[in-house]
Measured scan of single mutants.
Amino acid sequence: MATGGRRGAAAAPLLVAVAALLLGAAGHLYPGEVCPGMDIRNNLTRLHELENCSVIEGHLQILLMFKTRPEDFRDLSFPKLIMITDYLLLFRVYGLESLKDLFPNLTVIRGSRLFFNYALVIFEMVHLKELGLYNLMNITRGSVRIEKNNELCYLATIDWSRILDSVEDNYIVLNKDDNEECGDICPGTAKGKTNCPATVINGQFVERCWTHSHCQKVCPTICKSHGCTAEGLCCHSECLGNCSQPDDPTKCVACRNFYLDGRCVETCPPPYYHFQDWRCVNFSFCQDLHHKCKNSRRQGCHQYVIHNNKCIPECPSGYTMNSSNLLCTPCLGPCPKVCHLLEGEKTIDSVTSAQELRGCTVINGSLIINIRGGNNLAAELEANLGLIEEISGYLKIRRSYALVSLSFFRKLRLIRGETLEIGNYSFYALDNQNLRQLWDWSKHNLTITQGKLFFHYNPKLCLSEIHKMEEVSGTKGRQERNDIALKTNGDQASCENELLKFSYIRTSFDKI
């Protein structure tokens, strides 16, 4: 039985969820670079991206490699990797027998973001014989899940209580170790020597080791999670996991709180800001991140802002960003909400898709409305799209047979046209069989910064309504002859009103 693990408890099935942008060198404390989270699957090609990484700022997932063999891993080693800020997950990587050479110096898994409450997941690794993470000293947050690894031993010899604050939620089941077939031998045991430290858990006094050649490092209890030197002297209180010299914040392997210019500090002093819960960055760093993602459509890219001495992905609820200094300031009234469309555009074809934009005031991208039916549609669209004030790209209304009016965009005031449909149009209306009105132009103002209007096959939309939009939106004169079809717009509506004058002759039985 794995020490510190839980057996036999019912657990939810383990679901495996399925960018080499360097964020800056980590400095003297770390020998390499800070790398983003990685999802490495199918083959070993991307694994080489770990070569210079000291910190993975995010998670590391290595999974679904069915053609790899043990010899493929023999020359692979990433000794610079010290810390993973989120979680480490391995799933069905064939041929991998140990992690001792792959990650010989991995010391800390912070667990800032977890995989279903777990910071370390080893699942269905069919050839893994031992973990071998002999320098792993601290899992700051989260638990361990090690399950269905039929060859995995050296679990009962690990004292997880020396690595985690609590072992109650560890789930370590259905491994070879369960069948008591392992016969784990710690260093020196074969020669009758006791080389590794022994600890007591559940009444068992057991030597602690990761492999037959690597003991588990056990520091004096007084050192807590700070770690200790090879001689057993406690590291500085700002260290986490390990250090090369005692009581020196510049000799830590990793930091308990924050890293700044080669030393570990309790908090980031001005003019620095907390970033990702582990390091200090200056304003320029946060500003660069903001600008890199301002026009990016890459998933996970955030326009970072500053709030409460932190550089964070977005302002919290009730705050909006001051564009001059990136500071989050309290909103006066309802907060603006910028919604970034991942692929640059979004099609609204149902109430469900409209709900995804609920509360958005600025759309960074283009909207395509293609709704053919739905219950209580006008009210639903207004509830979900009615706060949109600005669209950076274009607005396209296409084959939306259920629409009679666009009044559900009740606050839309600006279409920038930074991206144009077919390279020309910022407003595009095609084949809307029941569209009769755009907006009530006596109450609604709309500016279209650039781009043209396109109207074709809107049989109940009168040309007068379209011409009014040209005047109000500032697009009059931009359109070419064929942009607004004269014969297919309003051709099934009563669009022309003329005053009919009647004269009559009164007659009676005795007068003409």
Rank of each mutant, 00 (worst) to 15 (best):
G188N: 03
V93P: 00
C243F: 01
E33L: 10
I139K: 01
P330F: 09
I146K: 00
G227K: 04
C255P: 00
L128W: 01
N42Q: 09
N138A: 12
Y171I: 14
I306V: 08
T250V: 07
R256F: 06
L64T: 09
D177T: 12
H226T: 13
S98W: 01
S161Y: 09
L164A: 10
H214N: 14
L106Y: 00
K67C: 08
E151W: 07
P79M: 03
C335M: 03
D39G: 02
P313W: 12
C196M: 03
N195S: 10
Q245L: 09
C153E: 03
Q245P: 02
G95S: 05
I163H: 01
N282E: 08
Q299G: 06
K193R: 15
V144N: 02
I122T: 04
A230K: 15
N179S: 06
C228G: 02
K310Y: 08
L76N: 01
N150H: 05
M65P: 01
C293M: 00
L88A: 01
N150I: 11
S284I: 05
D159E: 13
C182K: 13
E97V: 11
R162F: 08
N43H: 07
S324R: 11
C234V: 01
P70A: 07
H291E: 09
F78P: 00
D101E: 08
I62S: 00
D261F: 01
N149W: 01
R279S: 06
K310H: 03
D159V: 05
C153F: 02
C286R: 00
V305W: 03
E314T: 12
I84M: 01
D248A: 04
T320I: 04
T194V: 12
Q299H: 12
G318F: 05
G132P: 01
P70K: 08
N105L: 02
N150V: 08
L81P: 00
R141W: 10
I84F: 00
L332Y: 05
R298C: 13
I56P: 00
D247T: 03
N175F: 12
L102M: 09
N295E: 08
Y87F: 02
K176Y: 15
S143Q: 14
H127D: 12
E168G: 03
E151M: 09
C186Y: 03
E181T: 10
K67E: 15
F205H: 09
S237I: 09
T211L: 10
H48P: 06
H28E: 08
E168T: 13
G300V: 12
H307M: 11
S244L: 07
F258G: 02
D277Q: 09
G203N: 13
T267A: 14
L155F: 08
V34L: 06
L164N: 05
G227T: 06
R298A: 07
K148W: 03
F275V: 03
A198L: 09
E71N: 11
R110W: 02
G262P: 01
D75R: 03
C286Y: 00
M137E: 06
Q276E: 15
G262T: 11
C153L: 02
S323R: 05
A230L: 04
S98T: 11
L174I: 11
P334H: 06
T329L: 09
L96S: 02
H212C: 15
L332V: 05
K67L: 06
G58I: 00
Q245N: 09
H28Y: 09
C293P: 02
I146H: 00
K310D: 14
R162E: 15
H48D: 04
K294G: 13
L90S: 01
K224C: 05
I62H: 01
C239L: 00
V55W: 03
P36H: 03
D169P: 13
N43R: 07
N202F: 11
F66L: 15
C153S: 09
L326T: 04
F116P: 01
Y304F: 15
L44T: 12
A190L: 10
F103K: 01
C182D: 15
L96C: 10
N135S: 09
C209E: 05
E151V: 14
F103Y: 01
L152S: 03
L102R: 01
I201G: 13
L47M: 09
